[in-house]
Design a protein around this nucleic acid. Structure first.
Length: 483
RNA sequence: CGGGGCGUAGCGCAGUUUGGCAGCGCGCUUGGUUCGGGACCAAGAGGCCGCGGGUUCAAAUCCCGCCGCUCCGACCA
């Protein structure tokens, strides 16, 4: 940590000085997480977990609204099941945790701690599906998964993380494709509406797609340091898994057919995205829709009016606690100024100050976390103003993030210029690519930038020359340095 | 997995070079005075110096091994 003299938040390294350190300072000081005694693992503390609960609640609603039901599958997967799909095992083998013993007894077959649940779920689906009447099968699960990662970062990449994974089965290829795209759309709408994070969506390249998928779709967000973060993926699995797990159904035409599948997921990584998209030198800036505390009330306690002020803020909280996540910080061992900084660091969208002056004027002093704006609100207007202000903060955060992304998205067809931007400014770079994995690889080796996605609208054009090889009829795709 | 940095009280650090009582600031506890942007006074509590070996009369300090965090790379949906 670096002490930054005159600034308000002493605990946090300035963002532009050292982005990584700023991020680490924040997740620790705001008590979102703490390191656990297992390498790469963390405890998610109540303040961080509350954000996850809000994400779960808001996304779960959407998953159910699109016809999916929740279920739960085992943490352990027999090793032989994981090994059935060739690409899948190749993709995950290096990072699976294995259970070899039960007590002192060696297991006859080793168990994999799920890195994702395709294998175990497909093995169950094979038993549940016989007829086209059993389809579509639309199931989601909220769970933890384990991937033994080489390098980890709180929330962004940890050995164990929380997520939801949807696993659906369909009778036709078209229907599976439609499902994969539909859920990508749900993710995009969710990220933008609830997390105030603008995302670009599109198709992953062959080298970046999910191990075992036919196609992978993705939403990608831009962090404040100009690096991209994959925020959610949706896979069209084709018949890859149904063939090896033998998920067959008798169709209307009396033919026995292999089913078509999808899977899709977002993880607790989204919490990292919220931090890195919205945060500033003072700390977090949480979008009201997912903020554990939307409004904090800080009483200004004075010797003379201590009782009146405390009574007022307490009834005040009761008044709004039904519709707003409101918290009264009436701890008397901390000064008002200390609390201001503390709650700003924790990213609470709106602060209300109630002191003798406010009481005499019949209202409260409000301060927005997003703009720092300070203003008086008359008591009578509060029921209307508070929800309206939270909505306004929510949309303003989205607007700021969108402006930042637009400012940091470049359209470039010259490789030298491309290299300069990757080096100096980062951000998204829309550049033509011929589709050859060799060119993708070459650009990655030169610049560390990867193709984040091929946007849906991308059309090849005659005069678009591949950034790397110069071939005509290339498509504009998004490049970035990524987390 | 390769290279660098770090690990001493809850947090930030000094002490390690040259072995000899484990310290400072913040925080914490208690009492009191305060409170509109990190208040003040007084009295206190708090340590397997990351872990395990070794050298030594004596190790936070020297040697060996390991673990963890972190940065850069490799790897990675």
């Amino acid at each position: 940590m670096v002490t930054n003299g005159k600034d308000f938040v002493k605990e946090v390294t300035p963002r532009d000085e050292d982005f990584s350190q700023w991020y680490l300072d924040l997740v620790l000081k705001t008590e979102m997480m703490d390191y656990a005694p297992v390498r790469g693992c963390m405890a998610i503390r109540p303040y961080g977990y509350a954000i996850w609960e809000n994400i779960q609640q808001l996304l779960d609603k959407r998953i159910k609204a699109t016809g999916h039901k929740n279920a739960y599958f085992p943490l352990f997967i027999p090793e032989s099941l994981l090994q059935k799909e060739a690409d899948h095992v190749e993709g995950f083998a290096p990072e699976v945790a294995l259970v070899t013993h039960g007590g002192d007894e060696k297991l006859t077959e080793r168990l994999v701690v799920r890195p994702t649940s395709e294998a175990i779920i497909c093995s169950m689906y094979a038993r549940w599906i016989q007829s086209y009447r059993d389809l579509p099968l639309l199931i989601n699960q909220w769970c933890n998964v384990v991937r033994w990662e080489k390098s980890t970062r709180p929330f962004l990449r940890t050995s164990e993380f929380l997520w939801q994974e949807g696993h659906t089965v369909h009778s036709t290829e078209e229907e599976a494709e439609e499902e994969a795209l539909k859920m990508l759309g749900v993710y995009k709408e969710f990220a933008e509406t609830e997390l105030a994070i603008p995302v670009i969506s599109g198709l992953k390249t062959e080298s970046e797609k999910f191990a075992g998928a036919l196609r992978t779709y993705t939403i990608e967000a831009l962090m404040a340091d100009g690096r991209a973060l994959q925020a959610g993926t949706s896979h069209n699995l084709g018949q890859h898994f149904s063939r090896v797990f033998d998920i067959q159904f008798l169709d209307k035409d009396k033919q026995l057919k292999y089913a078509w599948q999808t899977s899709w997921g977002v993880s607790s990584r989204l919490i990292g995205a919220i931090i890195m998209v919205h945060g500033d030198d003072r700390g977090l800036k949480l979008p009201p829709r997912v903020a554990p505390v939307q409004v904090v009330v800080v009483p200004i306690i004075t010797k003379k009016q201590r009782k009146e002020v405390l009574e007022r803020v307490r009834e005040f909280a009761d008044e709004f606690s039904g519709e707003i996540r409101i918290e009264v910080d009436d701890r008397e061992e901390y000064s008002a100024g200390w609390k201001f900084n503390e709650w700003e660091m924790k990213g609470v969208p709106l602060r209300l100050e109630v002191g003798p002056r406010d009481l005499s004027q019949g209202g409260v002093t409000a301060v927005r976390r997003d703009t720092g704006e300070k203003f008086f609100i008359n008591e009578k207007e509060l029921p209307k103003r508070l929800p309206a202000l939270l909505d306004d903060i929510q949309s303003n955060l989205f607007k700021q993030a969108l402006e930042f992304r637009e400012k940091n998205t470049y359209s470039v067809d010259d490789y030298e210029k491309f290299k300069d931007i990757v080096q100096e400014k980062r951000g998204f770079i829309l550049s033509p690519w011929c589709g050859d994995p060799g060119c993708e690889e070459g650009i990655k080796n030169d610049t560390k930038a990867t193709i984040r996605c091929i946007p849906f609208a991308a059309e090849p054009s005659e005069d678009a020359l591949c950034l790397f090889c110069g071939q005509k009829n290339s498509k504009p795709v998004y490049f970035a340095r990524a987390y």
